[in-house]
């Protein structure tokens, strides 16, 4: 059990827990305006202060984090549900036309930087949270396809896979029964990394107006609002930023910890 894993799990649980808590409770209603009370520094009444419209920043961050997590999670789901089958299929027949096509396709998608992809989609369909999810989801597909294929290829050379083939099992059958469970560790680790990245991507896209649209609060939207006011009241920029760093660090540490914790078992099985 590593320290990294414990810190990561604790940090992620705390912050994601706070975000989920906003479903049932927030200190204040995050939509209620209170202009006379605007730009209050952190204090007893408002633990993290208020924004330019007098809204409670803690409540906003809780709700905003929930939005950001939702965006990241949906994009992750798109990447996993398409990337993993593609990676398994490519590894099944290494080097044949299917593998070549999938890997070439991956290269093409990789040639579009995430932000450029989001810009293109927004230019065509207009800005929305959905388009941010689709853009990051598409970006995630080749990531998971590569991880899955990379993990699966050496497995196909292993003798237990040959034994399964001698037992007459089809490639697809073997992929699901033997390959998938053995690349699961890699997918869990990559999944936490992409999830963390998703939080940052949502923030960046919403910051430049390509992501979540008003009035829905998100961490990136809060920072966009704060940009012009940061000199007057730094806390309205600092709080959402620290929240992003906290969640991302928590998830990354969790991913690192999981990699260390899951690896020795594989090692043990091998040697």
């Amino acid at each position: 059990m590593t320290r990294t894993l414990i810190i990561g799990a604790a940090l992620s649980t705390l912050l994601i827990g706070l975000a989920l808590l906003s479903l049932v409770w927030t200190p204040y209603d995050h939509t209620s305006l209170n202009i006379p009370n605007k730009l209050q520094p952190p204090g007893a009444a408002h633990l993290l202060g208020t924004d330019h419209l007098g809204r409670d920043i803690l409540s906003m961050v809780m709700v905003g984090a929930r939005t950001s997590l939702g965006v990241a999670l949906l994009a992750l789901a798109i990447g996993l549900s398409l990337g993993v089958p593609l990676g398994l299929a490519a590894a099944m027949h290494k080097g044949n036309w299917l593998d070549e096509t999938i890997m070439r396709g991956n290269d093409i998608v990789f040639a579009f930087p995430l932000l450029v992809m989001a810009i293109l989609i927004t230019a065509v369909f207009g800005p929305s949270a959905t388009n941010a999810i689709v853009a990051f989801g598409i970006f995630n597909i080749p990531v998971f396809a590569r991880v899955t294929r990379g993990g699966a290829l050496p497995l196909w050379e292993r003798e237990f896979i040959l034994a399964a083939r001698v037992a007459g099992k089809s490639h697809a059958h073997i992929s699901i029964e033997h390959i998938l469970p053995n690349v699961l560790n890699l997918l869990i680790v990559q999944g936490t990394i992409q999830f963390a990245l998703g939080i940052q991507v949502e923030a960046a896209l919403s910051f430049v107006g390509l992501g979540v649209q008003p009035p829905t609060p998100s961490l990136g939207r809060m920072l966009a609002d704060a940009q012009t006011l940061v000199t007057l009241a730094p806390h309205i920029a600092i709080v959402p930023g620290v929240a992003i760093i906290g969640i991302v660090m928590g998830l990354n540490l969790l991913g690192d910890g999981l990699r260390d914790a899951l690896d020795p078992r594989l090692q043990k099985a091998r040697t």
């Binding site: 963390a196 940052q200 920072l223 940009q227 920029a237 600092i238 906290g246 991302v248 540490l253």
Partner: peptide, 15 residues
């Protein structure tokens, strides 16, 4: 580096 990786560049720019 754990901190650096988590740092959103545009937020860091504001700071």
């Amino acid at each position: 580096t754990q901190f650096g990786v988590a740092l959103p560049n545009f937020w860091f720019a504001m700071m």
